[in-house]
Structures are given as C-alpha cells and as structure tokens.
Design a protein around this nucleic acid. Structure first.
Length: 578
DNA sequence: GCCGTTTTCGGCCCGACTGTTTTCAGTCG
C-alpha cells in the first residue's frame, strides 16, 4: 500500500488484522489483539467510506470498538498510506509469520515456537523442516502435528475459499435429509452464516438434536461425500466434503436446542454481544442454555434466550452486531421484507436476447409464482453477444407485449430494456426510443477497469438521462469470480435520490449486487431498491429467494422495496418527475 | 485497546476436540 493507492475502509481493516496477527505471534495481551480484530470488523461493516469522510473534513463517526488510540491510527493510515505501528511490528516480527497461522493446526503460539526455535519464517522453510522431521522435536509438537502441517503445505490447502450461498445449499439440503433419516435424530438445521443468509459461506454449521444412543456421528462421518474426517467426538464432529466444503455437526439435547441454535447461528460478534448482556445481568450463556449459577433458566428456544436478556427475538439476517441489539432494546427492529411481499419483477430476459424461454413462458411462470407484473428488459444493441435489441426489434417486442397483455389475465407485462451504459455515460439507445417504454433498466457491461472517478461520473451521467429508471447490478461484481468495479456508490445513491430513480438488488446468487451494506445506505437515503431476478429462464425466478435474504440482511422493509408496490403505485413511481 | 445499570480500573464469551501430555495448552468456532 502506498500513498498513491486510494484507501478505503477495507484497507484500514486489513492493516488492523495484520497488526492483530503479528501482536498475537508476539505474545501480546489477547484482549489487545481482539481490540484490533473488533475494530477491523467494525470498519468492514460500516456503510460509509471513512477516508472520504475525513478528507471532507468531517469528524470520524463513533464506531463500536474504535477509541482514541485506533482513531489516531486510522487517521495516520488515511493521511500517509502507512501505519507506523505496523511498520514497527514488521521490524520485530517477520511479515511471513502471519501467513503461517493460516495453516490449519498452526496458531500464533506454535508459529512463534517454530520461529524462535527453528528460525522458520516462510512456507518453504516450514515444509523443509517438516520433511526433515525437525518439527516433532519441539515441545508441544509431535509426529501427527508434523504430518498434518506437511500435508497442508504440500496441498497448499486453500482454507480461505468460500462458497456462494446457492452452491452451499446444493450440499446442505441432501446432507440435512440424510441426517434426518438416522435413527434417534429428531431435528437437523443448518445454522451459521448459511442461516444468516450471507452471500457466501465458509463452512456449514449443522445442529441436531438426537437421542443419546443415536449413531448420528458415525453415520455423519460415513456420508458418501465425506473426503476427510477432521475430528469426531460425541457432541461435535468436523468433516471435509469432496467439494472442499467443511461441515461441522453439533448434537445437543432438546432442552438446549434454542441456546445452541442461537450460538451456532452467530455471528460471532452478535453472540459475544448477547453473552456480555447476559453477564451484566448475572447470567451465563453457553450453547446449552442460559444459566443463573447452576440453574438453567432458558434454552429450549431462541425466543427464550433473547427473553432472558430482555430482548425480542432478532431475525438471523440481522445478527451481525451492527446495531440490531440497540434496535431490539428500543423496540425498533425492522419488520423485514419477505418473498410474499414482492408483487413483481423488473428485470427479466427472454429468447429475444440471451434468455432461454419465450415471452409467454416467462409471463406464465411469473404468474404461477404469484407475481402481478413483470418487466421485460432485454439487452440493448451494443451487447451483440447477447443478441441485444435495436430500436426496430424493440418496437416489435413492444407490440408482442401489447398482444399478450390483452390475452393474459393475472399478470401485466411492462415494456422495458436493459440498456448498456456506454463508456462515456451515454445510453445505448436514443432518448426518443427509451421514452416509449414503461421503464429503463441501465447497466454497465464494459470498461470495468475505469478509475473510480471516471466510472462514477460515467454512471452519474447516465442517471441524468431523462428516461433512466433503475441501475442494474450497480457494482458489477461476480461472487468468488470478479471484483466489483471501482465506483462511488454513495454518490450514486445520493444522485438516485435527487433524480427520483432506483437501485437494483440483483438476486442472481452469483451477483447479489448491491450488498447488504449498500441496501442499508439506500434505505437511509430514502432510495427504493428493486429486488430483481435477472431471470434468463423460468426457473430463475427462484433467485428472488436469495435477493430477499440479502435485502433482509440490509434491514429492508417492504416500504423500502420498489417492487412491493401495487402496479398503479409502481407506475406513478416510474414516471420520473425530477 | 476498548469500555462503563459492577464507570476511569479491571475486566474483557465460552466450550469441544486433538495431540501431547500425565493434567493441559493450543486451536478452532
């Protein structure tokens, strides 16, 4: 990182994480280490770009876990692009050691010992020492640890890999069914980030209740897709599936189900915050229940657990320690949007461009799902690979829509387009063509590499066009495949408010664009979000389910979502007045 | 390093499993 690279919250968080790693290896006070990690979490979940705020001369907002000391460090990083604290640590502790703690089974204490006694600083040195049998000679290390480390280094085990929620679901659903059929098993649920509907998950956390004699753990380890059993005990086992997905299974008594579900749903930050609340009330919370002294006072359901700390039940999607506990205490939890609230879908393709099904097939599928309206939004002419429509083909489709609307009951088709935003911010079809449509969905499909300034200006210019209604997949990212392009969404959101236009939450599980944080920001600015499937075939309407999960994580209520509106109201909103 | 219905010091969430140990440290979630 240098002074010339633009700095964002993520960069500051990364510095704090690295400081935490190095402090930990240096045997620093664990609570101080945790303070840095908490601060990193806090920065990552904060919706506004802190460097921008500071450069505008605004005060640093009060962030949880960031006090005077860390505020000074943040300012230093923003102003100079460096951190003297980190530089100082680098002088004392080789930078490579932090990477070694990512090897499963190696934590800060062991890495410290490897460095101190064997001088190991890099993965290569680690592999060499393991191959020569030197690791087993250290106190606290043995042959098994050495073998495991060697295997991990050789395999370059990528422990950081995450799975998209929709992908994880393909593994979770059959596995859950399999476990449910085992004798003595009564309930099996997927907890963890999966239950919180995070866009990607690092592993699956399964929770089950089972009779004491149930063979659940043996059967779990024997599941056909299991590649490796990492650990197996009576109440907890961990395996790795052939796909590389790690699965943890916890088994608890029925009386503890709610407490365990709460604990294993997390997030970690939320769990800790709730436990601290309990502590202040003289209670102790663990995965078995809520205890006053030795006596369990709650734990069968999550509602009981929350009630014990004086709170209403908080929906899993909000459990990130981003203000949900304060909101719950004040009785101001949002009434989150649900799939049933959606009355329409404003971004859909057909065979006319790169979709798989006809206009009629898409319309009927949408109606079957209970939708009242559907906007047909093909690609525009520039996107030749997708057989994008020119003015003439668009006109023919509009006529077809008129005919279908006359014929079909129970669903109304809206005339739209997904028009390309060209490099200079012009739209790919003339205003007089776009003006004949019910709505104009616009998106970036080219020149992803523009600078932040140019990319932002490009989209802002497009939004200034008179018929622009909705910005599709606003950051262009593909989860686990492609980074978002560099764009200042805060400015985009503010301009959307000024111009009376809208942002999409693209529900395709590869996109889920915009993120939960930007949903919150749009809500705060009063900009409506449209949850769209971007369907290319009839089955894609199920994407809406993932969009709803993301919207809920972003605290959206039905009133914050454009396509929860009845058709008449929607038409009013689409008619731009600004 | 943060934080306060145990306020400016003294706390800081809690338990399971493994491996290397003979009672526990380290790691992980």
């Amino acid at each position: 990182m240098s002074v010339h690279t633009p700095i964002h919250n993520e960069d500051i968080a990364a510095v704090f994480d690295e400081i935490a790693d190095l402090l930990e290896i240096g045997d620093e006070n664990p609570f101080r280490v945790r303070a840095y990690r908490n601060a990193a979490l806090s920065l990552r979940s904060f919706g506004q770009d802190i460097p921008t705020l500071l450069k505008q001369g605004e005060a640093l907002p009060k962030l949880p876990g960031i006090g005077k000391e860390l505020e000074t460090k943040i300012r230093e990083i923003v102003e100079t692009g460096r951190s003297t604290a980190l530089d100082e640590l680098h002088r004392q502790i080789p930078a490579g050691l932090a990477a070694l703690t990512r090897i499963p089974g190696l934590g800060p204490r062991r890495v410290h010992a490897l460095h101190r006694h064997l001088g190991i600083e890099t993965l290569d040195q680690l592999r060499e020492a393991a191959e020569q049998g030197r690791i087993r000679t250290l106190p606290g290390f043995g042959a098994k640890t050495e073998a495991r480390v060697l295997e991990a280094v050789r395999a370059r085990l990528d422990t950081g890999r995450r799975f998209r929620l929709a992908t994880a679901m393909q593994y979770a659903e059959p596995l859950t069914k399999y476990l449910q059929q085992i004798p003595g098993v009564s309930q099996v649920v997927v907890a963890g980030s999966y239950r919180r509907r995070m866009e990607t998950v690092g592993d699956l956390d399964l929770l089950a209740t089972a009779a004491a004699k149930s063979p659940i753990m043996e059967r779990f380890a024997a599941y056909g897709e299991v590649q490796e059993v990492l650990s197996q005990g009576p109440t907890r086992s961990t395996v790795i599936l052939r796909s590389g997905l790690q699965v943890d299974l916890r088994v608890v008594p029925k009386a503890s189900f709610g407490a365990a579900l709460h604990y294993f749903t997390g997030s970690k930050a939320h769990s800790i915050a709730i436990r601290r609340l309990a502590q202040r009330r003289g209670l102790k919370i663990n995965e078995y229940g809520v205890f006053r002294g030795e006596k369990r006072i709650a734990g069968k359901t999550e509602e009981e657990v929350y009630r014990a700390v004086g709170l209403p039940c908080i929906p899993p999607e909000l459990r990130e320690d981003r203000g949900e506990i304060t909101a719950a205490r004040a009785g101001r939890l949002p009434a989150l949007v649900e799939l049933a609230h959606l009355r329409g879908d404003l971004h859909v393709h057909t065979k006319a461009s790169d979709g798989q099904h006809t206009l009629r097939e898409m319309a009927l599928a949408a109606r079957d799902l209970g939708l009242e309206y559907l906007a047909i939004t093909e690609h525009s002419q520039r996107l030749t690979v997708a057989r994008g429509l020119d003015a003439e083909r668009l006109t023919r489709q509009m006529e077809e829509i008129d005919r279908l609307n006359e014929e079909l009951d129970g669903i109304t088709l809206l005339k739209g387009i997904e028009v390309d935003i060209l490099e200079d911010g012009r739209l790919d079809l003339p205003d007089k063509v776009l003006g004949r449509l019910d709505l104009v969905v616009a998106s970036v499909h080219s020149h992803f590499g523009l600078s932040r300034e140019r990319q932002t200006e490009r989209v802002l210019r497009a939004m200034d066009r008179p018929h622009f209604t909705l910005l599709a997949h606003p950051t262009g990212r593909l989860l686990e495949e492609r980074e978002p392009y560099d764009i200042d969404l805060e400015r985009i959101i503010r301009r959307a408010r000024e111009r009376g236009c809208f942002l999409e939450l693209n529900a395709n599980p590869r996109r889920l664009d915009i993120t939960d944080i930007y949903c919150q920001m749009a809500k705060a600015e009063g900009v409506l979000v449209s949850i769209n499937s971007d369907a290319h075939r009839t089955t894609d309407f199920h994407n809406l389910h993932f969009g709803i999960g993301q919207a809920r994580r972003g605290w959206l209520e039905p009133a914050n979502v454009l396509n929860t509106r009845p058709l008449q109201e929607l038409r009013e909103l689409l008619r731009r007045t600004m």
